[in-house]
């Protein structure tokens, strides 16, 4: 599904990613772990097309097409979804309208008919209920006045409604209590299937107990320095990143 080869990227001419090689086959969930500042969030942003990051080398193909040549909205239409580490507040934008606009834009790009407000609300309410979100979160402005946990759940709600092929979850577990964590993990697990892959960026083994990855990768200083099975995450929980991270120059 996702093939990353030699990917290097910088922001404000400062290199962050220094040659990433990563393959996520269809149907698999891969975890990305690593110390702060190793480039985990940058990887998520570069894959979803944020324009202030400049790709300086490498290729990314997504289901056989060149992802890096696509605009952010085209990537979303193709099935890429980034759950933001710090979801953006949109004062004056009603959450339900936002979600419907997004869903209909994606449906339009696939030549599908748009959902009207009634059809959409039925879908959104059902998904919100599954995520144990109060109905009024659909009526409120996007992420405005949401608690940290509500913002993260709102990201998962968007994912559940937009049904991406590749979900990139950037520390979606941080700031969640254990119940919310299970809800988030269940939300991702519900999408798991042969046509769905996920990159789960996390600091904690905790999430991976509920959302068991096929592979775990350790990112340090812009490179993947170690890959392994689910056990790797448990080892890291005990030993930390010492020994994996090259000494700072």
């Amino acid at each position: 599904m996702l093939q990353i080869r030699g990917l290097a990227a910088s922001i404000n001419e400062k290199p962050i990613l220094r040659g990433i090689d990563l393959t996520v086959p269809a149907g698999e969930v891969h975890a990305i772990m690593g110390p702060n500042g190793s480039g985990k969030s940058t990887l998520g942003y570069v894959l979803s097309g944020r324009e202030d990051y400049v790709v300086t080398a490498g290729t990314v193909t997504f289901n056989g097409v060149d992802l890096l040549g696509m605009k952010p909205e085209e990537r979303a239409a193709a099935g890429v979804f980034l759950a933001f580490q710090a979801p953006i507040e949109l004062p004056g934008v009603n959450n339900a309208n936002f979600l419907r606009t997004a869903l209909n834009a994606i449906r339009r790009s696939h030549g599908e008919s748009e959902l009207d407000a009634v059809q959409f609300l039925k879908l959104a309410r059902a998904e919100a209920k599954r995520l144990a979100m109060p109905d009024d979160m659909l009526r409120r402005n996007v992420n405005v006045g949401f608690s940290g946990g509500e913002k993260k759940r709102n990201e998962v709600l968007q994912m559940a409604i937009l049904r991406p092929k590749l979900a990139i979850l950037d520390e979606t577990d941080s700031g969640l209590d254990i119940d919310a964590l299970k809800i988030v993990a269940d939300g991702v697990n519900a999408l798991r299937g042969p046509d769905f892959s996920a990159l789960v960026i996390t600091h904690h083994q905790r999430l991976l107990d509920h959302l068991v990855p096929n592979r775990v990768h350790v990112l340090a200083q812009g490179r993947i320095v170690r890959s392994g099975g689910p056990d790797l995450a448990r080892d890291l929980e005990k030993s930390g990143y010492a020994g994996l991270v090259p000494e700072a120059a």
Binding site: P72, E73, I88, L90, T101, A105, L162
Partner: peptide
């Protein structure tokens, strides 16, 4: 904000219009 909207599949011009309205 613009990137957030576009990352959800909303085309650039539609996203801009939405933010002005907001």
């Amino acid at each position: 904000q613009l990137f957030y909207l576009r990352s959800r599949g909303i085309p650039d011009q539609e996203a801009r219009a939405l933010l002005v309205r907001a």
